[in-house]
């Protein structure tokens, strides 16, 4: 067994152990405080932990399957996220072909380009080519009503749900000296830090949260939760330096960056939900809401993390 494999398996065992502990705590809390299932906070906590098991198993299987597994997993995540996003937009009949193209042409091409590691094209395909051709497809139907809003929404949906999300599997294409064959651990680093940041912000907020940080956008977010969550996620990232090409200090700096980006991304997506008058993006993940509710902080941090690592460490 090579080093990358043994690191990955160690990481999966560690994550499994962590979730087992969470499940144990959740079960004890349920038995002591909510035996009849009436405490909604505890019921939601357990629903979230169970959904985490499913997500970790899926990601773990994709990691073991290798590059193709990871690309396919994130292509499906993009599909589900795009579906949630477009459901909330103002599209009209005239956008039908543009939307069909977004789902069945743009999305597969973007992930194909990521799979064949064609950086020169996947980094501009949606910002340039989709950006120009999607409104062309829409305008051919001759419906000008709310045109700018419609095309802007579809482009935004593609950028967030497909372009940004595809930068997670794109981490596999980086060529880092002395790190060959281990890139999948960069994805693990990114996802663990971002998601732990979300979880720890939630925990710190529940325990010590007093001062609301953005009362109009996201009433549950507090300064205490933000500071505590981001600081502890930074420590988690530093503690994971051994799976990365970074030094402990560099790992801490990158973890801090992606935790902050994740937090800000969560705020942006909350503002969109407020604007659209919904609480969650969907109902795909029990206890969490929609897929975008779980993915929002990842999509905002993934491209930044990708580019920092690419410029700082990669040869390509």
């Amino acid at each position: 067994m090579n080093e990358a494999r043994s690191d990955l398996i160690l990481l999966l065992i560690g994550t499994g152990g962590f979730l087992a502990l969470a499940s144990l705590i959740g079960t004890v809390l349920k038995l002591r405080l909510s035996p009849d299932g009436s405490n909604t906070t505890i019921e939601n906590l357990n629903a979230r932990i169970n959904a985490w098991w499913v997500m970790v198993v899926l990601i773990g299987l994709a990691f073991i399957a290798g590059r193709i597994g990871v690309v396919i997993l994130f292509a499906f995540c993009s599909f589900a996220a795009l579906r949630e996003f477009v459901t909330l937009t103002n599209t009209r009949r005239a956008d039908h072909w543009a939307l069909a193209a977004a789902f069945f042409v743009v999305l597969p091409i973007q992930y194909y380009l990521v799979a064949i590691e064609y950086y020169g094209l996947y980094s501009i395909f949606i910002p340039v080519y989709a950006f120009l051709f999607m409104p062309i497809i829409s305008v051919l139907r001759g419906d000008a009503e709310r045109f700018l809003i419609r095309i802007a929404e579809v482009q935004w949906a593609l950028m967030i749900c497909v372009f940004c999300a595809s930068h997670v599997p794109a981490l596999l294409s980086l060529d880092i000296p002395g790190y060959a064959g281990k890139n999948v651990l960069l994805i693990a680093f990114l996802i663990i830090v971002v998601q732990m940041s979300d979880v720890l912000q939630y925990v710190w907020g529940k325990l010590f949260g007093k001062t609301k940080i953005a009362p109009k956008l996201s009433p549950s977010k507090t300064v205490e939760g933000f500071v505590g969550g981001v600081a502890s996620a930074t420590l988690v990232g530093a503690g994971l330096w051994w799976i990365t090409p970074f030094s402990p200090l560099q790992a801490a700096g990158l973890a801090l960056t992606i935790a902050i980006m994740g937090f800000l991304g969560g705020l942006v997506m909350s503002a969109i939900k407020r604007d659209r008058g919904v609480k969650d993006w969907g109902h795909l993940i029990g206890g969490h809401g929609g897929l975008i509710d779980r993915l929002d902080s990842v999509v905002f941090s993934a491209p930044i993390f990708f580019h920092i690592v690419r410029f700082g460490w990669s040869l390509t």
Binding site: E84, V86, T87, H96, W97, A100, G282
Partner: peptide, 18 residues
Amino acid sequence: DNLNRVMPKGEIVPIPLI
């Protein structure tokens, strides 16, 4: 709710919407 947006009359390709 929403199925009419998935496949409006006269279209052949359905688009994915919740």
